[in-house]
Design a protein around this nucleic acid. Structure first.
Lengths: 191, 191
DNA sequence: CCTACCGATCGGTAGG
DNA sequence: CCTACCGATCGGTAGG
């Protein structure tokens, strides 16, 4: 079926765009780069996406969707507030530093390239993920595990985790999972 | 004297570039934008700077220099480890969120636009600032104020502080100085 | 510092 | 999805 082939091709383009946008940045990636990465002519891109920006939106939406799904799934098996807290950190860093194809890092760092309309749309999706963080942090604070100013704590922690991609080197002293544990330890009031 | 006039003009260009690079990003700012901001023709820019990238380097170098000077100056009047810790947070957020013309935020977010050569040069300057953070954190840890894993703590905190510019809104519930205090409180083991 | 300009490249389109 | 192309814009330069 043509439709399913088109979906596959579209998915390939999103995967390639994730990688290229992460490596080179959105602005420095040309439509010719993108087309070449999947073996088509640059004009053919616009059969799948109306504009280059639409590709960015697709990448970012895929990034937040994957992250939210992973977190939701990982939280299912958890019981204690501490378990949930650990899961928050681990899923975030595994996705950002580990097996992610780049969509999450594009989501974090390419906001300035979005139009106002697209930004508004994506903020809604991102807020869903942050609300999940807020819920888990509130529960942890109620259990005395972390500081009670959970809204600010959420911002500090997410910022700190987002920033790991600026300095983390794979194959170094810590895996993403180990790093998650060490970072959590920095803000834990008791164990 | 022509020389001092040239210096003034160069400083004006760096100030304009700081503002424009912060507002629009380096890639989306054109040499025509930059020239217009100081009232000259676009070709005339290249009398002051050899390339557009040289302007970015100048902005980033100015950003880290100002930040380091501010911190050094502010630390002079401090005595206790807690005082020094507070100064660390306050200077960083005052500069980033307050009166800064934009150079610091450009410094933080435009690394991917640099050539390898320029990046190496700027890393050295930035490392000086981070070493100062490390010293203060080590002293605070020795006094039992913060977690002993100060290297990772430094990364978490600097990341968290850098990220504030993504969500902080001037005129909101906290001034940069108040925010600094609240954030420090999140990682303080005792007071 | 201006004038006048250039080659390269960009995102995107028409027609098939 | 390709071919062939376009107008706009980009960073940068030569000559004064």
């Amino acid at each position: 079926m043509t439709t399913s082939e088109e979906k596959t091709r579209r998915a390939e383009l999103i995967a390639a765009a994730s990688r290229l946008f992460k490596e080179q940045g959105y602005e420095r990636t040309t439509v010719r780069d993108l087309a070449q990465a999947v073996g088509m002519q640059s004009g053919s891109l616009f059969y799948h996406f109306r504009t280059k920006e639409e590709m960015l939106v697709a990448v970012m939406a895929a990034g937040v969707a994957e992250l939210s799904e992973r977190l939701e799934e990982a939280l299912i098996g958890t019981k204690t507030p501490l378990d949930k807290l650990k899961t928050l950190f681990r899923v975030h860093l595994d996705t950002l530093l580990g097996d992610d194809k780049g969509a999450l890092s594009v989501l974090l760092y390419e906001w300035p390239s979005l139009s106002d309309k697209a930004r508004t749309e994506l903020i809604k999706l991102r807020d869903g993920y942050e609300r999940e963080w807020q819920r888990v942090l509130d529960e942890a604070a109620a259990a005395g595990l972390v500081h009670h100013d959970t809204r600010l704590l959420r911002k500090l922690l997410l910022g700190g985790l987002h920033w790991t991609i600026q300095w983390y080197k794979p194959g170094g002293e810590s895996t993403p999972a180990e790093l998650a544990e060490r970072l959590l330890d920095l803000v834990l009031k008791k164990k």
